[in-house]
Amino acid sequence: MLKAILYKEWIKLRWAVIVIAALTVLSLAYTIGMINYYVEFQGAFQNWMYVIGKSLLLKNIVFVKVLPLITGLAFALIQFVPEMTNKRMRLSYHLPISEKKLLISSAGFGYMFLLAEIVFLFFGLWMVISMTYPTEIVTKVLMSTIPWFLGGSAIYFMTAFIILEPSWIYRIIYAVISYGLIELNFRASTYDQYQNLWALILIVAVMPLTVMFAGHRFRRGTK
């Protein structure tokens, strides 16, 4: 049964996965070009000084900030909006599998792809910036991206949760909370500024649990 459900999710997600993977490759290639452009026109030394002193790289790699957000949002929408139109989810609830398992495996499967995208992005970025910059800068930049990835993960779970929630009032409340939780990951203005990252990781780690409540309310038909 589980296999069939995962297959269904894959059918929904496959185009999005391919598009996002292509976008990632394009963005990485674009970044290589952009860094080379800056190095060429600013001069290598001056470029390093801007990167160190003015956090220039954070501006050059803005796609690493945005892509996980887009991916998280897109995956959640693609996976769960079709389920909720015309209350199709009701059909799934008749399957011989518990609703909790169903929701967790769907969301888990989607998140797996988001995580794969994040890992891809992380190592791709690592490769791209180590071509031009020394380890000190690379480490700092990679550390700066962790909150962004947490933001991407948060937007996936919270969007899934909002879509699965049957009542519009609740959806609005949840949207407000989601905004706060996601924004929390985008407060840095320079490299590696976050301390207590574990607290942010913990917050994202409990998010999958929320999906269950929405699913339960849907089953009960709460308005």
């Binding site: 407000v176 939780l181 917050i203 409990v206 409540f213």
Partner: peptide, 12 residues
């Protein structure tokens, strides 16, 4: 699950 949502609301 409900208390998780409440916890997230408390944080925000």
């Amino acid at each position: 699950s409900r208390y998780t949502i409440i916890l997230l609301m408390v944080i925000v």
